[in-house]
Design a protein around this nucleic acid. Structure first.
Lengths: 148, 148
DNA sequence: CCATTTCGTTTACATTTGTAATCGATTGTT
DNA sequence: AACAATCGATTACAAATGTAAACGAAATGG
C-alpha cells in the first residue's frame, strides 16, 4: 500500500528528507550543514522546511534537551513510489508502458538493476492483457475522442 | 533532447494540455466543455489556465476571428518524458533501477508494451555498468555518507 | 552566573498555483 | 442597427511554496 499520502511533499522538502533518509536520525544542524552548500539556503530556510515536514507528518521529532532528533515517518522507497504514482495518474494508462520504456532508456542501470527489472517484467508477462483499458474522460485521450 | 523546458507545467495546466493533445486543435470552448464535468471548473478557471499555458509557451494560439485556435507547442510524449526526468532528478541515480522496477510492477501493461520494454531492456544490457555512480552530494544518500 | 551560541517557533513577504468574477471587444442574431 | 452571446484579457484573492529575518528559550562556555 503506502499510497494514502494525501499531503504532498514539495521538491524542497524532499531535499530535507533525503538527508534524513540517509542519516537515519538527524538534528537540524546536520540537515542545515548538509544542504547549505548544495542549495545555498540560509539556515532559517532549511528550518522552515523542517517545520513544515513535521507538521505534514513526514518527519518525526523526538525531543532531546533543547533540540529534536528528526527521523523519517515514511521510507524513501514509499515516497518515491508515491511520487511516481502521481505522475502516472496524470497520463492515460495506455501510455504507461511507453513511458516506462522511455524512462528505462534514459536511466543509468547496473547489471543487477537489469536483472531485477527483467524479473519484474517476466512476472508481468503472465498477467499482461491484450489491450490496456483507457482511464481517461472523453476528450482527454484519443481512445475516447468521440467529438472529433 | 526536449528537456530544456525550464518552465514547469502544473497539474491543472496538464489537464488542459491533455485535451489539446487529444484534439490536436481546440478552441477554448472545446477545452472548457471537455473539462467542466471532470474538474468541476467554472469556464473562467479553465481560461486562466489556458492563458498561463500560452504565456509559458506550452500552447500556441492562432487567431481566428475573435477567438483563438489552440495547439500544443510540445508533444505529450516529450512533456511526460520531462516530468519523469524531473522525478528522477530528485532521487539518487543508484535508485533509478529499483524505482523503475516498482513502477513496472504497478503499471497495467499490454503484451505489446511488454515487448517494447523488453526490447529497450535488451538494448540496455549491452551498456550496463557494474555499479551505477551516485550523483548525490554527501549526506543525501548512503553511498557518500561520510559523516556517520 | 553571565554572555554567547544554538534551537525551534513565529512572523514576513514574494511568487506560484488554484479558483473565479468582471469587463471590454467582437460576433452573431433579429 | 440594436441586442445578446461569446471570447480573451484583466483583476482578485486565497492557499501553497520558497526564502528568510527576528525572537525567545535553553544550553554551554567561561
Amino acid at each position: 500500500m503506502a499510497i494514502k499520502e494525501k499531503v504532498e511533499m514539495t521538491t524542497s522538502e524532499r531535499e530535507i528528507m533525503r538527508v534524513v533518509w540517509t542519516l537515519g536520525n538527524a538534528t537540524s544542524k546536520d540537515i542545515v550543514d548538509m544542504l547549505e552548500a548544495k542549495k545555498e539556503w540560509k539556515p532559517a530556510t532549511a528550518k522552515t522546511f523542517i517545520g513544515r515536514l513535521v507538521k505534514k507528518g513526514f518527519l518525526l521529532a523526538e525531543s532531546e534537551g533543547n533540540k529534536y532528533i528528526y527521523s523519517a515517518a515514511i521510507s524513501e522507497e514509499d515516497s518515491v513510489r508515491t511520487a511516481a504514482h502521481r505522475l502516472f495518474e496524470q497520463i492515460c494508462h495506455k501510455q504507461a508502458g511507453k513511458t516506462i520504456a522511455d524512462m528505462l532508456a534514459d536511466a543509468p542501470l547496473s547489471h543487477r538493476d537489469i536483472e531485477l527489472i527483467q524479473q519484474v517484467l517476466d512476472g508481468k508477462k503472465k498477467h499482461a492483457v491484450d489491450e490496456v483499458a483507457c482511464n481517461c474522460v472523453p476528450g482527454q485521450c484519443k481512445c475516447k475522442c468521440s467529438t472529433h
